[in-house]
Write a protein that binds this DNA or RNA. Sequence first.
DNA 1: GTGGTCTAGACCACA
DNA 2: GTGGTCTAGACCACA
Lengths: 123, 123, 123, 123
Amino acid sequence: MIKIDSRSSKPIYEQIIEKIKEDILKGILKPGDKLPSVRELSSMITINPNTISKAYKELERMKVIEVMRGKGTFVAQNYKPVMNEEKMNEMKEHIKKIIIEAHYIGVSKDDLIEIMNEIYKEF
Amino acid sequence: MIKIDSRSSKPIYEQIIEKIKEDILKGILKPGDKLPSVRELSSMITINPNTISKAYKELERMKVIEVMRGKGTFVAQNYKPVMNEEKMNEMKEHIKKIIIEAHYIGVSKDDLIEIMNEIYKEF
Amino acid sequence: MIKIDSRSSKPIYEQIIEKIKEDILKGILKPGDKLPSVRELSSMITINPNTISKAYKELERMKVIEVMRGKGTFVAQNYKPVMNEEKMNEMKEHIKKIIIEAHYIGVSKDDLIEIMNEIYKEF
Amino acid sequence: MIKIDSRSSKPIYEQIIEKIKEDILKGILKPGDKLPSVRELSSMITINPNTISKAYKELERMKVIEVMRGKGTFVAQNYKPVMNEEKMNEMKEHIKKIIIEAHYIGVSKDDLIEIMNEIYKEF
DNA sequence: GTGGTCTAGACCACA
DNA sequence: GTGGTCTAGACCACA
């Protein structure tokens, strides 16, 4: 189930994208599984259908989910990681930012790796 | 020197904040060092003074820099890491997001730690 | 045999129309050949009968196939190309679009003609 | 100037995308040129800003245009053709469709190449 | 002023 | 019922 945090500064459509990706990673959603339709999910979490649609479109673009005409939307059967220099640099930027932030709240390198290990255990 | 990428999706004021924090962490800027004034930096990097001002205000709020009335702006003398649950959770959220993204571009846990180590070497 | 790609953004009824036209052009289907009934084709390719029906109606309207009441549906005996300014303009629009797309994926004019020649060989 | 054909079955945002790509190809728009803002173009062609925005976002995704924070939207400085198997196959599908259509309106291979040459002259 | 997000609601093609 | 397109309009962060 998707929980939206309306207090979060993270856009709703991004929260949806991340949650679905997370659920796939955790195996809660498996390749071939049917996702709720835009309207279904919309009424389930009382978010405007356009917002759901935006999230689904983005996930489709990333080839994480696929729309089967007349059948609905499904978790992609064989997702292949799409790696390119741009995405790699983006990720490095994010990591760098975290490392800086960590330092400023007093979290050392070892602490950070420890935290990462903890989070990896969830998956 | 601060390089602004106006093509980036990251807000300019955030780029400035991050760059200054990074320079402090790397020792390029040391406690007590004088920062250029808002106007100076504004003309140096041809960015709207309001944007510079916003970055400085934010850095001041975080106690990373200090304004000495009539003298200018300086790197704080004794920065003390401010840790609280909220900031910790925020950081964990960011890490979780990175871990998910990493997976979707085909970067394994070991790769990720490797990349983190690389970035830590810069500091 | 008609293969439907339900992942495609192309509507199913259009895929059917195109495939039948293609088969006629290739000589796999010849004038006078009997086509499967709507129900037959529907169960053959597990597609909603309404969708098959829509494709057949469209092909009939184009005079590519003919319905003989009580006997079934057949490839038209003497198809006469129907040319008019509107169809011509439509085709030109499509070609223009392809030329633009080709350029943006780095396909030159010569490449494009080469590709066209290749495809013509299939027919 | 962008002319929208509201009678066309082609979505408005696609018409905008194609027109801008066409103008760049023809040299009417050059790398670095500023595009009208979403609101400007919106009032120029009396189309809802959301629709313009959708077209711009798509063009940005394709790296045909780029948004410079606080400065506006510009034709990308150095567009690099993005080629991949998927796009190639898509183009081939389109060409195949045109070849079939051409045949059914009585346009021969030579005619088709002739028409293509004509259109290439516009660019 | 600039684009980004979100809602509400309408209409349509497709299956 | 399903997603796609479009409009109108609000609110916000950023520069």
